[in-house]
Simulated assay, not measured.
Amino acid sequence: MTTRPNVPGEPTQTGTALLETATGAIQSFAPINKIHEHQCAFHFYAYDMTRQVESHHFCSHQNEEMRQCLIYDKPDAEGRLIGVEYMISENLFLALPDEEKPLRHLR
C-alpha cells in the first residue's frame, strides 16, 4: 500500500496498485511520453510577492514557439502537480490581445 504525505484520503490499497500496474501496461501515455525537458525555477505567490516556491517544469515542445509544461513542487515521485504553463516566444506573445498579455510571460 502506498501512503503519500499531506494528501487527504485513504492509502492506496494493494488491489488498486495492482490494477494500476496492469492497466499501465496496455494504456498509451503518448502525451506524457512527449515530455523531454526538466526546468527548475522559482514562482512567486500572486498574493504575496515576498514568498516563492521552487517549481519543477516537465515540458514538451508543441512547436518551435511553444512549450507545454506540467509544474510539480518536487522532482521526485512524491511531487504534487501544482500547475500547467505554456511558455511562448516573443513573436506569439506580441500577437496576443493586450488584455491577455499581463497573464503571460515569455520563455
Rank of each mutant, 00 (worst) to 15 (best):
A22T: 06
Y72I: 01
H38K: 06
Q68V: 12
K101C: 03
A17D: 06
L19G: 05
T50I: 05
M87C: 09
N6W: 05
I71V: 15
A25L: 15
A30S: 14
I32Q: 07
G83I: 07
R107D: 12
L103E: 14
L81N: 04
S60R: 09
T16H: 08
Q39P: 00
E54W: 01
E99W: 09
L106N: 06
Q62T: 12
Y86G: 06
P11I: 03
A25R: 13
L96R: 01
R104V: 03
E65Y: 02
E85H: 07
E54R: 12
R51I: 00
G9C: 09
E10M: 13
Q62L: 13
T23K: 08
P11S: 11
V84M: 08
L106H: 02
M1I: 03
H61I: 02
I35V: 15
F58G: 01
I26K: 10
T12S: 13
M49A: 15
D48P: 08
V7C: 07
M49K: 13
H61P: 00
G9K: 06
R4Y: 12
T14D: 14
A95D: 15
S55A: 15
A25S: 15
L70W: 04
Q52L: 14
S55P: 00
E20D: 13
C40G: 00
V84K: 07
N33G: 05
T3M: 06
M87H: 08
V84N: 06
N6L: 14
P75F: 11
R67N: 08
F42E: 12
L94F: 02
E20S: 07
P31C: 10
A17I: 05
D48L: 04
E85F: 02
E65Q: 13
I82C: 05
E10R: 15
G24F: 03
P8T: 03
L18V: 12
A22F: 01
I71G: 00
H61K: 12
Y47S: 15
Y86K: 08
E85N: 11
A25T: 10
T12K: 11
I32M: 07
T23G: 04
P102Q: 06
T23F: 11
Y72Q: 01
M66Y: 00
K101M: 02
F29M: 03
G15F: 06
Q27A: 14
R104Y: 15
K74A: 10
Q27H: 10
N33L: 14
E10P: 00
F58W: 01
N33Q: 14
F93I: 04
R80E: 09
Q52P: 00
D73I: 00
M66S: 13
C59N: 01
K34P: 00
T50P: 01
A41D: 03
Q39V: 08
I32C: 02
A30F: 03
P97G: 04
Q27P: 02
C69M: 11
T50V: 09
F29E: 06
N6I: 01
H105I: 02
I82K: 02
L70Q: 02
F42M: 11
G24W: 01
R80D: 05
R80Q: 09
T12H: 05
A77V: 04
F42G: 10
Q39F: 03
P8G: 03
L92K: 10
E65K: 04
C59Y: 00
F93E: 03
A25H: 12
T12E: 09
D48C: 09
F42A: 12
L103G: 09
Q62E: 13
I88F: 07
M66E: 14
S55D: 05
Y45N: 08
H56C: 01
P97F: 05
P75K: 13
D73T: 00
P97V: 07
